[in-house]
């Protein structure tokens, strides 16, 4: 029994080590492929960046706005009902900034992007690999690592950055409108409280998160997209792509919050 458990843990550790090594090699190949940038015409990447930004950013706007409204409202309702009990209702703005701008906005936005675009990236690449589209590109002398991964990273950074800003703004406005149904707070007071609560650190932390999420989401999803060697492996690796990107996103979120607010 104990022996079996030790063997299982050992195998698990070896799998993790091999996975990390393989992912490092993938990143190395991406970095190497960046050198091809000087050989290619940027116009061939431009269309992909535009299309990916439209799919990841613009097309996700409606769902981001709805979720931002709902989450913003939930936070405000909880704040309005709980803060007076502790006599700290004056800290409503601080609470909104802490919960929505610092944590909920970046994380919820990234989770939406992972669910929509991360899974789409992994599926698209796996299907392209299976139908030998990627092989065809390689045989045209196209650096597929650069051609496929690089535009998605750029599009993802731009989209996540934009969506986080929109999420925060909508959550604040939505929260304010919901709050109005319970208690009257003048608009200028509400706005001033929010502005006073924002610090430069909050903005840089949100920026760092959007850049790191923007790199991590397409990178991990592309990595798993390139993995399947047969058709039946496609759903297995797409599922892995989504779950592991979610996991990494939460870890990155904690790491950045720790670096910016704890250390």
């Amino acid at each position: 029994m104990i022996e079996n458990t030790v063997i299982k843990i050992g195998r698990w550790a070896i799998d993790i080590r091999n996975g990390v090594k393989d992912f490092s090699l993938f990143i190395k190949s991406i970095v190497t492929s960046f050198k091809s940038l000087r050989y290619i015409r940027f116009r061939s990447l431009y269309t992909i960046i535009i299309n990916q930004t439209r799919f990841t950013g613009v097309d996700a706007l409606s769902i981001v706005i709805i979720i931002a409204l709902l989450l913003g409202a939930t936070v405000i309702i909880q704040a309005l009902t709980s803060l007076p009990k502790f006599g700290v209702e004056g800290f409503l703005g601080n609470l909104l900034v802490i919960i929505i701008a610092r944590e909920l906005g970046p994380l919820a936005t990234t989770l939406i992007v992972i669910a929509r675009s991360g899974s789409a990236i992994a599926t698209e690449i796996s299907v392209q690999k299976w139908s030998k589209e990627i092989l065809a590109m390689e045989l045209m002398g196209i650096d597929t690592k650069l051609f496929i991964v690089f535009p998605r990273i750029i599009a993802s950074i731009l989209s996540i950055m934009g969506l986080i800003i929109i999420f925060d703004v909508v959550a604040f406005i939505g929260g304010y409108l919901i709050a109005l149904t319970v208690i009257y707070i003048p608009m200028d007071t509400f706005g001033q409280t929010l502005i006073d609560s924002f610090t430069f650190k909050d903005i840089t932390a949100a920026l760092a998160k959007s850049i790191l999420f923007g790199i991590a989401v397409p990178l991990i999803c592309c990595y798993y997209g390139f993995k399947p060697n047969s058709k039946f492996e496609i759903p297995i690796f797409v599922s892995k792509a989504v779950i592991r990107t979610l996991f990494v996103a939460i870890i990155v979120n904690i790491a950045i919050s720790t670096i910016f607010y704890l250390i």
Binding site: T32, S36, V127, E133, L139, G141
Partner: peptide, 24 residues
């Protein structure tokens, strides 16, 4: 090397029976 191989592939036209057209 890595880049010369890309240039070499660029110089050869290749067509296989699976065609590999980009679906989108």
């Amino acid at each position: 090397d890595y880049f010369s191989l890309m240039e070499y592939k660029e110089e050869i036209g290749y067509l296989h029976g699976d065609y590999g057209l980009i679906s989108n």
